[in-house]
């Protein structure tokens, strides 16, 4: 059975995860058509009012529509987490591949660099980076990727280390393939499975990290409809308007849940020992 087949067989978790992922992407793409209001519409007279027919999920700070921000929030979380994961993965896989393949001093230097970043509190790095560069979506992505790549680097390095002694790699080397070609054609494709799983788990991690940055006031620019920013303003009003934090919190939790289940299913599918029962 191929991995794809096993994945399809895989139970409710995979289906739920996939459904959440699709809904998330759909919402992100079509937020402007789904939303009842504009995300920057302000109405001070309706500030923090509970759900009504005009505002099905109530209003938040400055009278913004919570539903609109939850829907648009999918878009921001998609942008931030997708680009953070892609950037982290690109940097991590490249550096990890180089470290694993080259070995020796290069490996040593890169891995010590990884140690430094792992030992450094991640939230602190992100805090510094956004403080230096100012708040913008791109900078949040950069801040999250600054430490995010280390996981991929370690993983890729480990994979390459075990794979490079395999016969087909040795053969390719004997036939005169250069290191870049061997990495790209032989080593990385075989490491792809675990990396994909890692990325699936990293995605919800990035969503939560963006929210945490917003809590410290260093997330996306003010007014940007993001779940993190909405939960952040909602925590302040938990006593007077609990709905503000509740709905984006649910959206956040469901998305994270979905991706984790998807990750689990993918991992099970990638690992031939985990045959479905």
């Amino acid at each position: 059975m191929s991995a794809a087949q096993r994945f399809r067989l895989n139970s409710w978790g995979a289906r739920f995860g996939l459904a959440v992922a699709c809904a998330w992407v759909f919402t992100a793409l079509f937020a402007p058509w789904l939303s009842p209001h504009a995300p920057d519409a302000i109405d001070l007279t309706r500030e923090l009012s509970p759900p009504t027919s005009g505002h099905p999920l109530g209003t938040g700070e400055n009278g913004i529509d919570v539903l609109t921000h939850v829907l648009y929030g999918a878009r921001v979380s998609l942008e931030v987490s997708f680009f953070a994961v892609v950037l982290s993965a690109a940097v991590g896989i490249t550096l990890g591949g180089i470290a694993g393949y080259a070995g020796g001093l290069v490996d040593e230097a890169l891995m010590r660099g990884v140690d430094v970043l792992l030992a450094f509190p991640g939230i602190l790095l992100a805090l510094f980076i956004t403080a230096v560069l100012g708040p913008s979506l791109a900078n949040v992505v950069f801040a999250l990727s600054f430490t995010g790549w280390t996981g991929y680097a370690r993983l890729t390095r480990g994979q390459v280390l075990t794979l490079r002694e395999r016969d087909y790699v040795q053969a390719a080397r004997a036939l005169g393939s250069g290191p870049g070609r061997i990495l790209a054609r032989h080593l990385l494709p075989n490491a792809a499975g675990p990396l994909l799983v890692q990325a699936t788990f990293a995605l919800p991690g990035a969503i939560v990290a963006e929210a945490s940055l917003s809590f410290l006031g260093l997330g996306v620019p003010p007014g940007t409809p993001s779940w993190g920013a909405l939960v952040d303003q909602g925590t302040q009003y938990l006593l007077v308007a609990p709905h503000v934090a509740l709905f984006p919190g649910i959206a956040l939790a469901v998305t994270v849940l979905g991706f984790n289940l998807l990750g689990d299913a993918l991992r099970d599918a990638m690992d031939p020992r985990h045959e479905g029962r």
């Binding site: 939560v208 929210a211 945490s212 849940l257 984790n260």
Partner: peptide, 13 residues
């Protein structure tokens, strides 16, 4: 999984 999904600054209050 719900545990992972709840941000600490939300869960705390």
């Amino acid at each position: 999984v719900a545990g992972v999904a709840l941000p600490r600054f939300w869960l705390g209050p």
